[in-house]
Write a protein that binds this DNA or RNA. Structure first.
Lengths: 222, 222
DNA sequence: TATATAATTTAGACAAACCTAAAAAAAATA
DNA sequence: TATTTTTTTTAGGTTTGTCTAAATTATATA
């Protein structure tokens, strides 16, 4: 059997499921996929059946889906393409780091192996993309990186922003307002008991960051 | 009305029709489109109706289609994208000139204006692609170039290959066998009356080229 | 633990972009 | 010009990926 190409849709589902399952084996709910892809749960169920038939994931009715080894392998390749294109868009074409996601989202579905490997070479085998996310190599191996986010710091600890998890415009413009980007130094001044908000010092100004936002900003402790 | 995005299919039809109509106003038959796209004539008729409704072309039943001004504008933008990607693939990623077409065929459908304009800038506003075809600028203007092909030369005249019209693998490998690429010098030694074949000298060897092939190789007279 | 609520699946529809077979129109040829 | 051949269109289907509404199962809550 030829390893048959996936459709754009199938690729998007696979990538989403992989991301939701925390790079691996965790069960993913139909609803969570639906929310991320903006597709009705009923349609998600259909696609899950299809991917399940292709052995890209395992599905137990009313319970959830677990991506398979084969599915993981493919998902990682899609993520590799996405992140390499992001590097290209940012480093070569001079796009701002918050403009690259949507375009990479389209480029990632152009599925020539050779194209991606040559692009990788041209970019000198980058290890991370402009958001700080690690780029899988040709074999699908990923460098493990910092899993600490702002919420893991205690009062008076410092970190350097290394990675932004969420990738939507609203979030990006918020970060801009807060003066946060990859490389920004953050000092935790206070943690507000009431709702977990964090008071932090960024570029000599104090700002309040909600817990939810803070969780989506990964850092390297210093 | 928002200028609504075209689908990949619609873009492919439009580009094909534009090319078939010799960059302009000539009428194009349903069958000729069918042959190039490898899609049944009945399906082509369907799509023609659709494009006609969108005013991208004019269609008279059983007669043929003429691309509209609006359609032309869009087709030129698609061709611009295609050729810029070809330059990128060839010059930056070091693909061979006969490998780039199929990949560019996919990349051309990624439709961010800004992406294409930045790519254009990055490539330093190239005027021709690796096949010798002219690249429309941002405004859709195209440099007119040589319209002479090998068949326009007389015996003992010389030309330099400037452009290859056909873009399929078989044709490319034939050219390779004949030692023909952009820049190759060709001397016409004889024209065979019987079928219009051409005997030519290329890199000090005599070869026979069929009329059909010769028509697809554009040259600059020297 | 019974019931209300939420999540998931099933059933049935629809648009896009194809297809095949047959009908209709145009073009070529005898 | 009459007839054959070719081209184009129409009619009716299929697949992919989506939808809505209703039914089913799981979860949360009183």
């Amino acid at each position: 059997m030829t390893p048959k190409q996936l459709s754009k849709s199938e690729e998007n589902y696979l990538k989403t499921i992989f991301n939701l399952s925390d790079s691996g084996n965790k069960q993913v709910s139909t609803n969570s996929i639906s929310k991320i892809l903006n597709i009705e749960p009923a349609s998600v169920t259909d696609m899950i059946k299809k991917l399940s038939k292709k052995k890209l994931l395992y599905h137990e009715k009313y319970k959830g889906s677990v991506i398979s080894k084969k599915g993981t392998k493919l998902a990682i390749q899609i993520i590799r393409r996405h992140r390499l294109w992001e590097v290209f868009l940012h480093d070569k074409l001079q796009f701002k780091w918050n403009e690259i996601h949507d375009i990479a989202e389209e480029l990632e579905h152009v599925s020539s192996e050779e194209l991606i490997n040559k692009l990788d070479k041209y970019l000198k085998y980058p290890k991370i993309d402009p958001h700080g996310d690690p780029i899988p190599n040709k074999l699908g191996e990923i460098d493990l990186i910092d899993k600490i986010s702002i919420t893991d710091l205690k009062i008076s600890e410092r970190g350097i922003v290394s990675r932004i998890i969420k990738e939507d415009e609203n979030f990006f413009s918020l970060l801009k307002k807060l003066n946060i980007e990859i490389g920004t130094e953050i000092l935790i001044e206070d943690i507000i008991d009431y709702d977990g908000s964090i008071e932090a010092r960024i570029e000599n100004k104090s700002v309040i960051i909600s817990k939810n936002i803070a969780e989506n900003i990964k850092i390297t402790k210093i």
